[in-house]
Amino acid sequence: MLKDITLGQFYPAESKIHALDPRVKLVGTLLYVVSLFLFHNLAGFLLATAFLFFLIHMSKVPVSYILRGLKAIFILMVITAIFNVLFTPGTTIVHVWKIRITWEGVRAAVFMFIRLTYLVMGTSLMTLTTTPTRLTDGMESLMAPLEKIHAPVHEVAMMMSIALRFIPLLVDETDKIMKAQMARGADFESGNFWRRAKSMVPILVPLFVSAFRRAGDLALAMEARCYQGGEGRTKMKPLVYGRNDGKAYAVLWIYFAAMILVRIFLNLPHVPLLGH
């Protein structure tokens, strides 16, 4: 029933991308997202596309998995595109009543659509190839300088990993509680909205109770193992950069530099993207 929900969408495979240090992937994703907003022309677009598909190919993650992430924001993308088409001033192509569609509008919409698509694909690639634990490890390590200004970096990272760890547990628990209440004749499917909302009480109350109980148990278990926060704490699997990580950084910065150069030197004003 609830088991079909996939959360924390890691796709297990053995690839060079999977094996990279999570910090490389985090920095890489950030650079890629920035680079998406750098290009204004076809050359930049082609470069960003080539780079993305090169990475997808290396990661051995099926493209269909990466496209899945788009479903969630598809409506947002369509709305953004419509706004861009309708409200960008410039050379008019079509003019019906008060609606004016401009060449610049269409162009902006197409680019915005592509940018958002690549943004989601790029970030999905990161979450698909990195386990949640490694991701939080990477974030903690990258944010470590902020500890100097007393930001609770370690605590936030710990909270994140615990929250992620709890998700599958709570999904399981919900499934069990639902079944237990169904065995007592509970009905979650029929009735109007109000009745259905009320029928959730027998699930939510035990679920909260159990979440608090687990949290209490976990806190106790952590204290029993002398956990006292981040200071002086070492890791069982510390993050160490390998040779491939260095190469990956090099590739990343070369790509980023290329995107900047393309923006500066190949800034052709009107690209015949739509056969204009």
Partner: peptide
């Protein structure tokens, strides 16, 4: 068919 699950006390609400 009354079914009592494991740890049934976790279903009290």
């Amino acid at each position: 068919v009354g079914l009592v699950f494991q740890y049934p006390e976790y279903q009290l609400f």
